[in-house]
Amino acid sequence: MPISMLHCLQYNSFKGLYQVVAVKRLDTTGVQGEKEFLVEVLMLSLLRHSNLVNMIGYCAEGDQRLLVYEYMALGSLESHLHDVSPDEEPLDWNTRMMIACGAAKGLNYLHHEAKPSVIYRDLKSSNILLDEGFHPKLSDFGLAKFGPTGEQSYVATRVMGTQGYCAPEYATSGKLTIRSDIYSFGVVLLELITGRRAYDDNGGPEKHLVEWARPMFRDKRSFPRLVDPRLKGNYPGSYLSNTIELAAMCLREEPHQRPSAGHIVEALEFLSSKQYTPKVSNTVNSAGMESVESPKETSVILPQESERERAVAEAKLWGETWRQRRQSEQSSPEGSK
């Protein structure tokens, strides 16, 4: 649906102040445009969360269809990943993990806290908007659907969405579930890791991000090849495998094998808490992973042996936790859907 965005000042009579807002003008030519406008107004009137964009108001007078949102000062995640000029600094690793965690929290709210549950259906980097401090918020709910009710395990609907983000089972059957959103989130997480577009017409045989990355999921020695080269090695090698494995879980072909949004939030809260602090010099071994002398992501300096023991313990805990959750999910009614 064609849209145009503009920014303007709104007078807040309660505070006696002007505030900058974003106004989205929708082209409602045809039935689909009108439907998406109504869906977005309905969804944003019902939903409230710190990781969802806030709708301030709307206009549906004559042929005008306007949505008024809070102004998101830093624009979209897409622009910060894919439209960065050579003289600009790319998003650092810590910021990328913080954005991923916030987006996952918004998705978890839609899936498990909103009543009724909501399937987003259009999760992509251009729909993740960034406020001051790179605080992420999901936006554009024109394609959203309420989740299945009663005995139903899916919502049957016409296939909509953006190339590169659409879950394979939804693309082929039109059967939409919350696990379809998880696949799309996996694509966004992979964008954050790699700095590549989900789909690039100019990418030749590598135009599909997931198809390019999937063979490398099988070999941890290939993981450094997945990382955005603009980071120049400034990422925590000891937690890179956890992050890539999480993306791979979200992108599993079988929907019921993908983690829930809640489990993704828990994993990303853990990963985003491991702040990477680069040092003056890096030492990289032949496989591209950090050596013992390379930068550590912990903010507390510990003796080398203690640091190694703690890393081993955390890795074991990570693996045990995910195994238990996968077994629990597969034995639960939801896991069998």
Rank of each mutant, 00 (worst) to 15 (best):
K24N: 01
L107T: 13
E297Q: 05
G288T: 09
A267V: 15
D201Q: 14
K337A: 00
L38W: 06
L38S: 03
R179Q: 09
D83L: 13
A104G: 05
T177R: 00
I3V: 01
E113K: 03
C8Q: 09
F185L: 09
R158L: 10
L190R: 07
K220G: 09
A261W: 00
T95W: 04
Y183N: 07
H256K: 10
M55S: 14
D87S: 03
A311G: 08
E70N: 07
A60T: 03
Q327M: 06
A104D: 03
V41P: 07
I244F: 10
D228Q: 09
K15Q: 11
I56M: 12
E254G: 00
Q324I: 08
R258S: 09
H208Y: 15
E297A: 10
G33N: 04
W322R: 10
H112P: 04
G150W: 10
D92A: 07
G57K: 10
Y276G: 12
K274C: 11
F146A: 04
H263C: 14
K232V: 06
R25V: 07
S153T: 12
S117P: 13
E307Q: 11
F146H: 01
C250A: 09
A114E: 08
D92L: 11
A315D: 05
W212A: 06
R221K: 15
G203T: 00
E34V: 09
C101N: 02
G319E: 08
N94I: 10
E314T: 06
A248P: 14
T157F: 10
M98N: 13
E34Y: 01
S299N: 13
E169F: 12
L81F: 12
W322N: 05
N282T: 06
R258Y: 08
D131P: 04
V280N: 01
K207H: 08
G106C: 03
K296V: 05
L6Q: 10
K105L: 01
K220A: 14
I244N: 08
P259K: 14
S117C: 07
F185Y: 06
S260T: 11
E297N: 04
T157S: 12
I3W: 00
A213I: 02
N242R: 12
A315T: 02
N108E: 13
S125L: 06
S332W: 01
P295G: 13
Y165Q: 06
R214W: 06
L67C: 08
A315C: 02
E329I: 07
I193R: 07
P2A: 06
V227C: 08
A213V: 09
R96H: 12
S13W: 03
V159M: 08
T157W: 02
N234W: 01
S50T: 08
R96M: 14
S50M: 08
V23R: 11
P205H: 04
M216F: 12
R65K: 05
M289Y: 01
K232D: 01
A144V: 14
Q19I: 14
P168Q: 00
E253G: 04
S294I: 07
T172H: 02
Y58N: 09
V227R: 03
K105V: 05
F270Y: 15
V280W: 02
